[in-house]
């Protein structure tokens, strides 16, 4: 029974994905249809157009196995094995440095912002 419920809920999430793809296509939006679907679903949950119980088990299951879902796409690296040689290794270093810069920038900005508005102190009192 639980299995069927999960399948039905995933089908519903598929519906939102499909809806997002259609919006993206018709309105010619520069963002992926899946993200549009995410926003539509989030909106629907916020205004309670859809009770969270309709999707929570399906969404929970998909997110629990999320890392499995992108395995097939990652295996595609098999067509790029030549890539991992010589100069291209430098890109890995670039990604590491850029990631740490990103962490520093976003963390610092939000911490300063939170302190300025006194949210942290308000919370701890």
């Amino acid at each position: 029974m639980k299995f069927i419920k999960i399948i039905v809920q995933i089908a519903m999430l598929y519906g939102f994905y499909f809806l997002g793809e259609q919006f993206q296509h018709v309105l010619n939006l520069p963002i992926p249809g899946s993200i549009v679907g995410l926003l539509v679903l989030f909106g629907a949950l916020l205004v309670k157009a859809i009770p969270v119980t309709w999707i929570e088990e399906g969404a929970g299951t998909l997110l629990h196995y999320l890392t499995l879902l992108f395995v097939p796409a990652t295996v595609g690296v098999i067509n790029y094995l030549y890539f991992f040689s010589g100069k291209n290794i430098g890109l890995v270093l670039i990604v590491m440095v850029s990631t740490l810069i990103t962490m520093l920038a976003s963390g610092t900005v939000s911490q300063i912002f939170a302190n300025k508005t006194g949210m942290q102190r308000e919370r701890s009192s």
């Binding site: 939102f16 994905y17 793809e21 969270v52």
Partner: peptide, 23 residues
């Protein structure tokens, strides 16, 4: 990918699912 694409197809709804933790 004859089989792999079946798993791949679930990525779309999985991204949509991120609305749930956000909610």
């Amino acid at each position: 990918m004859i089989g792999g694409q079946w798993i791949d197809h679930l990525l779309g709804p999985a991204v949509v699912s991120l609305a749930y933790p956000l909610y």
